[in-house]
C-alpha cells in the first residue's frame, strides 16, 4: 500500500504510465489518505502557475492574436462566402491553390506528375515494342527451305520451285510450276510428299493455258518429308500415285 501512495505526486504531475495510472486510480478508490492528499496537492501544483510577475501586454498583441485565430479558421467560412466575394477567377484559383498546396505538398504533387508523365511515356514505349513484336510474330512468313523441281519424261521441259514457308507455328508448302503440258479430260497433276518410301498426297492442280500452276499445301503439325514428287494422274482423287512421275526434287 505504501508504495502506491508514493505514486500520488507522479499521478498529479501526469508522469505515470497508463498502466501505473490505472493502478493508482484503483488504489485511490480504497485509500482515504490519498483521496484527501490528492485534492490539496493537486491544488498546490496548480497554484504554481500564479508564481509569475505581472507583465504588461503589448497593445498590438490583441490584433495579432485575433488575426491568427480567424485567419486559421478562415477557410471554412471563406468557402461558403466565395460566391459572394467579387474576386476574379484567377485570384480564386490562386487562393485555392495556395490554401491546398503547402510547399511540401506542391513538391510531392510535382514529383507525382513527373512520375505520371514518366509512366505514360514508358507505357507508350512499351506499346510500341509490343506492337513491333506482334508485327514480327504476325507477318513473317519465313522461307525455311527451297526446292527446285526438274521435269522428266513427258514434262521434260517443265520447271518448278517449292518453298517451305514457316508462318508462326504453321508450315506450308508452296509449289510453283512452269511449262507444264496441258492436262486433258480428268487429268490432274498431283503432288506427293515422300518420307521413308511412303507417299502422301499434298493436293492436285491443273495448270493454266501457259502451263503455269501454283499450289499451296498446309502441312500437318510436326510433319516432315524428304522429297517432293509430282505425277500426272488420270483422275483427281487418288490416294496413291497411278500415273507417271513428271517432276521431282
Amino acid at each position: 500500500m505504501g508504495n502506491k501512495c508514493d505514486n500520488l505526486s507522479l499521478y498529479i504531475i501526469n508522469e505515470l504510465t497508463n498502466h501505473d495510472k490505472k493502478q493508482f486510480e484503483d488504489h485511490l478508490l480504497k485509500c482515504a489518505k490519498c483521496q484527501q492528499e490528492l485534492k490539496s496537492i493537486q491544488e498546490t501544483w496548480q497554484m504554481l502557475s500564479y508564481d509569475v510577475e505581472e507583465t504588461e501586454v503589448p497593445e498590438s498583441l490583441k490584433s495579432q492574436v485575433m488575426d491568427f485565430v480567424f485567419e486559421e479558421n478562415k477557410f471554412l467560412k471563406h468557402e461558403e462566402k466565395i460566391e459572394a466575394e467579387p474576386i476574379s477567377f484567377k485570384e480564386r484559383i490562386l487562393s485555392v491553390a495556395k490554401r491546398h498546396f503547402s510547399p511540401i505538398s506542391t513538391a510531392v504533387t510535382a514529383i507525382l506528375i513527373i512520375c505520371l508523365i514518366g509512366f505514360y511515356w514508358n507505357s507508350l514505349q512499351l506499346k510500341d515494342t509490343i506492337k513491333s513484336l506482334e508485327n514480327k510474330a504476325a507477318d513473317p512468313t519465313q522461307i525455311v527451305t527451297t526446292y527446285s523441281l526438274t521435269g522428266q519424261s513427258l514434262a521434260a521441259s517443265a520447271t518448278g520451285s517449292a518453298y517451305l514457308l514457316q508462318e508462326g507455328t504453321e508450315t506450308s508448302l508452296v509449289i510453283a510450276l512452269n511449262n507444264m503440258p496441258i492436262t486433258k479430260g480428268n487429268e490432274v497433276y498431283q503432288v506427293w510428299l515422300l518420307k521413308n518410301g511412303n507417299r502422301q498426297s499434298a493436293g492436285t492442280l491443273i495448270p493454266d493455258q501457259n502451263g503455269s500452276g501454283l499450289i499451296t499445301y498446309r502441312l500437318p503439325p510436326e510433319y516432315s518429308f524428304e522429297d517432293i514428287g509430282i505425277t500426272l494422274e488420270p483422275n483427281p482423287f487418288n490416294t496413291q500415285p497411278q500415273g507417271q512421275k513428271v517432276l521431282g526434287t
Binding site: E53, E54, T55, V57, L61, K62, Q64, V65, F68
Partner: peptide, 29 residues
C-alpha cells in the same frame, strides 16, 4: 485573461516575446 496568460508565457519562455506571442495565439486558437 491575456495578462495572466502573457505573464505566464513570458516566464516560461524566459522573456522571449516572439514565442510568447506564439503561445498566446495558440491558446486562443
Amino acid at each position: 485573461y491575456v495578462k495572466l496568460i502573457y505573464s505566464f508565457s513570458i516566464k516560461i519562455t524566459k522573456g522571449d516575446k516572439e514565442k510568447t506571442k506564439e503561445i498566446v495565439q495558440q491558446v486562443f486558437l
